[in-house]
Amino acid sequence: MPLFSRTRLFAALTLGAALCAPALAQDFPNKPITFIVPFAAGSATDQIGRAIGQGVTEQTGQPVVIENRPGASAMIGAQTAARAAPDGYTVLITTNTTHAANEHLYKSLAYDPVKDFAPITLLGKGGQIMVVHPDAPAKTVGEFIEQARKQPGRLSFGSGSSSSRIAGELLQQMAGIELLHVPYKSNPLGITDLLGGQIDTMITDTATGLPQVSAGKLRALGVTGSERSALAPEIPTIAEAGVPGYEMGYWFAAYAPAGTPEPVVARLHELLRKAADSKAAESFYRQTGTAKETSTPQELAAFQAEESKKWGRIIKSAGIQPE
């Protein structure tokens, strides 16, 4: 084919794609959307995914299917989403675990947190809570630290996310104690073992831990934020309870597979942002103490870059070697 003809053909195809993209976004969605959650059912990420999904369904009339893919520090779910068709019908509802911490915790990942995804929006930010079994001898953070110092490496802490793990690692570093780390596919699975007495403590998201505290099944020792939680103001911060300067949190965000057309990403952004204002989402934010926060795709990309640097510094200072 002559060069001129090939050039005209390429131009025509490019123009056709550009003209079709807005039409595609206008008709989107016309079938169910899948939200991949890289943590187990019942986790905070699962809860916010279901709440946002309900808000999307209310707007579009299309079902939102929640697909839980826990395991390998959320890498299984992230990889699944990265390999999905970039048509807007697969969305990853995730946290800083997959998109800020894992790249510093592991020598190699099965996905690229930047190149494999198209940012959609932030969904919220939250804090964590340190919990123990009600029969545990420690009734305060200070007592737990004292007990740990007397038994180096004997007390264990579970984690089902990078946020949970790093919170425990940071506690060890700042308090000068040595704990045994027990990893789980998701925080609810760790909570189950804590309830059964198989591990000694967890620092987990408030959405998972606080209901157990309210039911009297676990005892709270402290929260990880710089201020006490409005949901449980009687629980001190870990900083005021014995570890000055301690602070740790996490965030939720939504991503599409890389290559998803920009008009479709824009439509998803519109749907998810409005879904964050739905009754189901507002209930989640209120009941879990999560701060609602949305963003533009560009703002999420910039935020993720800064968070990756921050988590890298925390992990390095905690002396954690990439696995």
Rank of each mutant, 00 (worst) to 15 (best):
L3I: 09
F4Y: 09
S5G: 04
A11D: 03
L13V: 10
L13G: 01
C20H: 08
A21Q: 14
Q26G: 11
Q26R: 12
Q26W: 10
P29T: 03
P29V: 02
K31F: 13
V37N: 13
A40I: 07
G42I: 04
S43L: 15
S43G: 07
T45E: 15
G53A: 05
G55S: 09
V56I: 14
T57G: 03
T57E: 13
E58V: 08
G61T: 10
Q62E: 05
P63G: 01
P63R: 05
I66G: 03
R69H: 02
R69G: 00
G71W: 09
I76M: 12
G77Y: 02
Q79K: 07
T80S: 11
A82K: 00
A84V: 02
A84G: 02
A85N: 15
A85W: 03
G88F: 09
T90G: 11
V91M: 13
L92Y: 04
L92R: 00
I93P: 01
T95E: 15
T98H: 03
A100P: 11
N102R: 07
L105V: 08
L109G: 09
A110V: 08
F117W: 04
A118Y: 04
A118V: 11
P119N: 03
L122Y: 00
G126Y: 06
G127A: 14
M130N: 02
V131H: 03
H133R: 03
K139I: 01
T140Y: 13
V141R: 11
G142D: 15
E143R: 15
R154I: 14
F157R: 14
R165C: 08
G168D: 06
L171F: 10
L171G: 00
I177A: 02
I177F: 13
L180Y: 03
H181Y: 15
P183Q: 00
P183Y: 00
K185D: 11
S186G: 11
S186T: 11
P188A: 00
G190Y: 01
D193Y: 05
G196T: 14
I199S: 05
T201A: 05
A207Y: 07
L210N: 06
G216W: 12
L221M: 08
L221P: 03
G222D: 15
G222I: 14
G225F: 12
G225I: 13
R228T: 10
P236M: 01
E240Q: 09
E240M: 10
A241Q: 02
E247Y: 02
E247C: 02
W251Q: 06
F252I: 07
A254K: 10
Y255F: 11
L268W: 01
L271Y: 10
L272Y: 13
R273H: 01
S283R: 04
T288C: 07
G289Q: 10
K292V: 07
T294S: 10
T296S: 13
P297R: 01
Q298D: 06
E299W: 06
E299M: 11
A305W: 12
E306T: 02
K310C: 00
I315P: 08
I320C: 02
I320H: 01
